[in-house]
Amino acid sequence: KHLIERYYHQLTEGCGNEACTNEFCASCPTFLRMDNNAAAIKALELYKINAKLCDPH
Rank of each mutant, 00 (worst) to 15 (best):
L11C: 05
N17Y: 10
E23A: 08
G16L: 07
N17T: 13
Y47Q: 11
A26G: 06
L32E: 14
L46C: 11
Y7R: 00
E23Y: 07
N22G: 03
R6Y: 04
D55Y: 05
F31N: 14
L46M: 06
N36A: 10
D55R: 06
C15N: 00
A19N: 12
E5R: 13
G14C: 00
K48E: 09
C15L: 00
F31T: 11
R33T: 11
I41P: 08
A51D: 09
K48R: 08
Y47I: 07
A39T: 09
R6N: 12
C15E: 00
H2N: 15
T30E: 09
R6D: 11
K42N: 04
C28Q: 06
N37C: 05
L44I: 15
A38Y: 15
N37R: 08
T30Q: 10
T30M: 05
K42I: 02
I4W: 04
R33L: 06
M34L: 13
T30F: 12
L32G: 11
A51T: 12
N22W: 01
K42R: 11
A26C: 09
E5P: 09
D55T: 08
A51S: 12
M34Q: 08
K1C: 03
A39Y: 04
E18I: 08
A39V: 08
I4D: 06
A40W: 10
M34K: 04
F24C: 11
Q10G: 03
L44H: 07
G14V: 00
H9I: 13
C28K: 10
D55M: 13
L46R: 01
I49L: 10
E5G: 10
N17H: 12
A19S: 12
E23C: 08
L11W: 00
H57Q: 13
Q10S: 07
M34N: 03
A26W: 07
S27Q: 05
C15H: 02
G14K: 00
C28F: 11
K42T: 05
D35I: 05
C15F: 00
D55I: 05
N37W: 02
L32W: 04
E45I: 01
N22R: 02
A19T: 12
D55N: 13
E13Y: 12
G14N: 01
N36R: 14
N50C: 09
H2G: 10
S27C: 09
D35H: 04
I41E: 14
D35N: 07
P29L: 05
Y47M: 12
L53H: 04
H9W: 09
A26K: 14
A38P: 12
R6L: 07
L44F: 06
